[in-house]
Design a protein around this nucleic acid. Sequence first.
DNA 1: GGGGAGAGATGCCGC
DNA 2: GCGGCATTTCTCCCC
Lengths: 246, 246
Amino acid sequence: MDNESAKVKIEDALGKETIVMFARCEVYYSGRAESFLAEGDRIIIIKQDRTLLIHQPKNSMPINYMKEETEYTITTDNKELRIKARNKKYKEDLEVIIRKMYFLKSKNLEDNQRLIIKGTERDMADMIMNNPKLISKEFKPLSREEHTKYGFIDVFGYDSKGNLIVIETKRYVGDLKAVSQLRRYVERIKAAKGIKNVKGILACPRITPNAEKMLHDFGFEYKRVLPPKYLENERRKQKKIFEFKK
Amino acid sequence: MDNESAKVKIEDALGKETIVMFARCEVYYSGRAESFLAEGDRIIIIKQDRTLLIHQPKNSMPINYMKEETEYTITTDNKELRIKARNKKYKEDLEVIIRKMYFLKSKNLEDNQRLIIKGTERDMADMIMNNPKLISKEFKPLSREEHTKYGFIDVFGYDSKGNLIVIETKRYVGDLKAVSQLRRYVERIKAAKGIKNVKGILACPRITPNAEKMLHDFGFEYKRVLPPKYLENERRKQKKIFEFKK
DNA sequence: GGGGAGAGATGCCGC
DNA sequence: GCGGCATTTCTCCCC
């Protein structure tokens, strides 16, 4: 395909059809950072919302990209096709210099579906609210997403001894960051209420050794809790996979 | 294209060529979480390293995906083409049920280039190491990436009054997390060295109000520092963009 | 729009 | 492999 035809095709499709190209190109980016990618073969996608994605033939992340509502200027001569992309909102500029267009295709795609997802940290906190015994027999939950100046508490409550309880949940591994987060909330609650009997609990399936050490240094507790999806997996181990489908 | 031909094309290209499809499909995923995506038009990509990407016609993130080294099983009948993807390492499964294959293309792409990038947090810390006056006239840097049990310190040093200095850098906005991080390091240094005269400095272009409050609560300092790329931008404001293109 | 935090985060580096 | 952490993070929610 010659450069002039490619230019026309892209301009006609922009904002109406999703465009996919295989092309040999180099890429310049300037915005939140600055980057340069030397010549190589890539997949270039311009979506219907004017999102730009440039993918190398390996790895899952795009090597360069621009967000939705980007403006495009296409220029061409005998040797090159240049796609200049500018996003005013994010103050970003990107230029693709295409040295060889192997292939270009565009099509209007219709898709208004949203992903339905289960097994998130939110589900985990909800599970604890609904079944506080997962933390302990004494735990009484009060609220979810309690707002403090120093952030939001996942689950907030008290126990039979009159202690306030701050719970931070993690769906996978509790790490140093999670302990820091918990500490911030516990101290904020102590300061805000002017009391000292506030306990911190980190609820997650696993914890790193350093995080556990730090947790104990500050007098907090680790409570092993599995996210809801694992429980479901337990229940249907004998059943076949994907049975959750709707 | 009939399902049987598509199946053969995909099987032939797998691991050798990058495959791009426009297809009407639904998607099931089970692994770290579980998800379902009802029928719609999407771009499906299988890269040469067996990475799978499914993109809707809007937004920059893939709606579903599988990592490199995924194994594929393609099955078909008159009505559907099913792509079953399994990743043993990450214990993830995904299934794409294609109801309409609009288009399929594959090609071997050659690309061994790596992105050259400037203006990262690492560059910012390096800049402070090389030009400590950006922090203050008294600051003397000692090391980058100093390791402690509670994490790595971006820039570590001392001042003319004999205080140790811990600097945490952020390339954009300093937030509560950044202050927590700084605090962790300062306390760790105090504990490890058994001393009290350790100062914490958060070096970044901007800081959130709550973070600034927390910073002052703990006796730390905010030092406004711009990442190197902004400085370069200043220098070449009159020049045309993309001149950095090395 | 800013602030705060999760994400099927991913990717990088170090041990 | 795990740990710790930045990311052109992105996305969502709430004020």
